[in-house]
Design a protein around this nucleic acid. Structure first.
Lengths: 219, 219
DNA sequence: TTGTAAATACCGGGATCACGGTATTTTTGG
DNA sequence: CCAAAAATACCGTGATCCCGGTATTTACAA
């Protein structure tokens, strides 16, 4: 519950979940929600896509991952294609890093475990409607870990200002010659700088230097 | 409240906040918490660092960003250096993307706005103690947006399986010759594949190809 | 002031790359 | 089964790179 309260008209929530029991109890719980409706509860992405084709666009989609046929992960872009404004919340028993990663990268705005209470699911729906994201603290922690580990490995190699400058231009796709012109220095000088950079980074070619700079975020 | 409940012994929470009024009311609120204690509430990072030097290590640190002297962001690594196990939660009025980004990248496990209620702060503390992360849905949404936008630009260039394989080896730092050996094919063949890759990616050198592949996450 | 680091510049030779062709075999989809 | 796509292979030329040197000027710190 952030920012503006969600619009008061009825919010359509769609469910895709292959387990009959959980699906029905979930549908019942959603329907009981203050301003929520759940006209469709499907057991596969295929079934849901058929409904979306008949131009029905739910505000929120609760999506399982392990499904017969198209998986929930694979389904995300398909649903987004039909209905970009639909907010997708994953609802699954799996908390593997790469599932979380893939789901969120493909545009899911929430990731909940099935252990979540109806109350938590209800609040998550309100949150994504307000433009927020919905995840349990544990999931958020995992996201954060991926986040930091991606930005973290700032190797230090004591490059001089000039060397960093040259490295930057190199990474931006300039050849040594083109680069010498840009900096108004001799090609020989570029060569010398580059030799020093190679020595400091322990590499022996431009390829290696580019790869290392980009992989370790040296710029 | 995730996973195991936090240990029942008293949790030490440290506060760094320059506004006297907010600091005192926060300290009072924390101290009132079930199993929480707040022996130190500082008005600057410098003051807090002095205390940490006298080997006091709080389990949780509530940290403001705008501070006289060392900012909260700058302080994070310093605190982590003294006490790696301390969980840091940012508590600020600013929700700029780059502040969030920097704080979380430097190891903060939570990011709350000062509009948070004592109850929310209390729960956030419990969450980080259990290894989770603490953020409001709005902040989580922003994190997610940075996350996706970093992984998103998956340009599609119709590379064949073999071409991707060659591209991968190239990125891993293999020369064309070394690469031909690895794949047990002629150097000429590698050359041909590479020519096709260049055409598809619209580049004209290995450098460009490496840069493009890494920048656009083609692998 | 006296080193040391940084930035600049030059040379040559051997290795590697870019790219224009051409062409055969294998895989694959309709 | 047949056409298209993919993978394989070959060649030569000019461009570019890698690396071993050497050397001068500037800047800054001891």
């Amino acid at each position: 519950m952030e920012k503006n309260p969600p619009k008061l008209s009825t919010i359509n929530v769609m469910i895709i979940e292959d387990d009959v029991t959980y699906r029905q109890s979930l549908q019942a719980a959603i329907s009981a929600g203050e301003n929520l409706a759940c006209p469709y509860a499907c057991e596969s992405c295929e079934e849901a896509l058929e409904i979306l084709e008949k131009d029905f666009a739910p505000e929120v989609l609760l999506l399982d991952i392990k499904l017969p046929g198209i998986s929930g992960i694979e389904g995300i872009p398909k649903f987004k294609a039909f209905s970009p404004s639909t907010h997708i919340i994953m609802l699954t028993v799996f908390d593997d890093d790469d599932l979380i990663f893939n789901a969120l990268c493909r545009g899911a705005e929430g990731y909940l475990l099935k252990s979540a209470t109806p109350r938590q699911i209800y609040e998550s729906i309100q949150n994504v409607l307000c433009g927020g994201a919905a995840m349990t603290p544990t999931i958020a922690g995992k996201v954060l870990k991926m986040f930091t580990q991606y930005a973290e490995p700032k190797g230090e190699y004591d490059l001089t200002t000039r060397e960093k400058e040259i490295l930057q231009l190199l990474v931006d796709g300039h050849s040594k010659k083109h680069l010498a012109d840009r900096l108004c220095i001799s090609l020989y000088t570029v060569d010398t700088h580059l030799k020093n950079i190679y020595a400091k980074l322990h590499v022996h070619s431009q390829i290696d230097v580019i790869a290392k700079a980009l992989k370790e975020h040296l710029l």
